[in-house]
């Protein structure tokens, strides 16, 4: 899975370049992200490309959050498309992970 990363100050912004994040590629997403999470503990995921996500995608994000918190960091999300936002509300991720409209706001919030 393609990811592009950008360092803004202490924060790493990961842009996820896939339209779908579901059970078919959640594992792939995890593997691609693992090296980034090893080196950085303040991470923003820019997920504007993702049009569809399922519970596996949510589960993966939650496992990233737990990993980052254990190294005193955290994870934020930005530019979430409407269907994905509906999913986050449904499984109440919006109460656990901060979500921002823009990358800049997310970076500033650390």
């Amino acid at each position: 899975m393609k990811l592009s990363t950008e360092k803004i100050g202490e924060v790493t912004v990961v842009t996820v370049l896939t339209e779908v994040l579901d059970a078919s590629n959640a594992e792939e997403f995890k593997i691609a992200t693992a090296p980034i999470l090893e080196k950085n503990n303040k991470v923003v995921f820019e997920i504007s490309q993702i049009k569809f996500m399922d519970s596996s995608g949510c589960g993966t994000l939650l496992s990233f959050l737990r990993q980052l918190k254990s190294s005193n960091g955290t994870l934020k999300l930005c530019r979430v498309q409407e269907p994905v936002r509906r999913l986050f509300e449904l499984v109440r991720i919006d109460r656990i992970i901060e979500i921002f409209d823009t990358k800049e706001e997310a970076v500033k919030a650390f």
Partner: peptide
């Protein structure tokens, strides 16, 4: 039943289905 405190990654599937 699903846990919504972020401590678990799984268990949301049935919740999602019944609410959609």
């Amino acid at each position: 039943l699903p846990v919504f405190d972020g401590s678990q990654s799984g268990g949301f599937g049935l919740h999602i289905i019944s609410h959609t």
